[in-house]
Design a protein around this nucleic acid. Structure first.
Lengths: 188, 188
DNA sequence: GGAGTGATGTCACCTGGTGTCATCACCCTA
DNA sequence: TAGGGTGATGACACCAGGTGACATCACTCC
């Protein structure tokens, strides 16, 4: 076997992405992924907690960048304008990996199990954003609510962005969505 | 065995709730639940799609009642005021089953797997609310965003409500939270 | 060149989940 | 009142995800 060959994690990710894409998530076996990567089922589970997690590697990076954007916002910024900055950071990350993100999204959308995992990742992201907002002096309740509005807008914009034939930049879609959300909230 | 004894589904639910509460979700086996209910593992899976689903029986009812509240809202109502009505409906449901809801919540909070399932149920609820808003003439984007704001507020209020020593009514907590959300959105 | 170390393989095992068929309780009808 | 039909359940075999324990290999460093 490919013992000791480097990049086991990356090989496993690529194998999983390929197989999930080719024949579907449910129809793919962990043993098959491992075989394609020249490894063993046991080794797969040493790198990824479960069969789903392999698709969400890198979500911490998005989280970190959004948090960093909030930390870097001007002192006078309101909660929602810091959310706007975080969304800009997300935009940069999405744009730079557009095709990967698109494939990944199609796979996730095809499986109930994967959507569950996606939702809890979003929830974790919201928690991180909440903490970042609190660190910037936003009070607890407002931090929670603003962070959730942020992930709502991100999710909404993401869905529009991934299969937009015009390839409108994520940043623009997200900004419009955020503006729309404010409008709806104010009109109530 | 208790063949033919009625209420198999209810017996399974009660057994599951009891065992999850006593010894934890992960430490409970489906075979054990079935045994406690006087049934078989195979029968458990005839009533519930999986080990998690047994805790979410009745979530369709909440959905229906919130949708009904939107359908019954006055013609002049804004998207967010219809969300308010839906939250009132949710409040009624929560209050009438407070202790069950609390136990269930503690169990869900203890397990990652169960939180995932909870999140996808919330997402399904948001989709139903979105459809109801659209049926009331709210445009697509606004319906999606308002519905998500609604589940955000519901979730936020729910967390405060379940372990509030003062037993403040859910309705009041939710209304305050909705007001707070509007305030944050407007201040941005 | 040999000891140590960390990544991998091997194997056994548990549990969630499903397909298939037998079996039982109950109802209906002659 | 016997017998057939029907739907719920049991029994059994099986697959895949996931884990613990231990052996084994490649590589490094002395």
């Amino acid at each position: 076997m490919g013992r000791w060959r480097p990049d086991a994690r990356v090989r496993l990710m690529e194998a999983a992405l390929a197989l999930y894409g080719e024949r579907g998530y449910d129809e793919t076996t962990v043993a098959e992924i491992a075989e394609r990567a020249g490894l063993t089922k046991r080794t797969f589970f040493r790198y990824f907690a479960d069969k789903r997690e392999v698709l969400f590697w890198g979500s911490e990076l998005l989280e970190q960048q959004m948090v960093a954007a909030i930390e870097a916002a001007p002192a006078s910024a309101s909660a929602l304008s810091m959310i706007g900055a975080a969304l800009d950071a997300a935009a940069a990350r999405f744009e730079e990996a557009r095709e990967f993100v698109g494939l990944r999204q199609r796979i996730v959308a095809s499986s109930h199990e994967l959507q569950e995992r996606e939702l809890i990742k979003t929830s974790k992201l919201a928690a991180a954003v909440t903490a970042a907002l609190r660190a910037r002096g936003i009070d607890d309740d407002a931090a929670v609510l603003a962070a959730r509005m942020g992930t709502t807008v991100m999710h909404f914009a993401f869905e529009r962005w991934v299969d937009d034939p015009d390839r409108t930049p994520f940043q623009r879609i997200a900004r419009d969505a955020l503006a729309r959300l404010k409008e709806i909230a104010s009109a109530g």
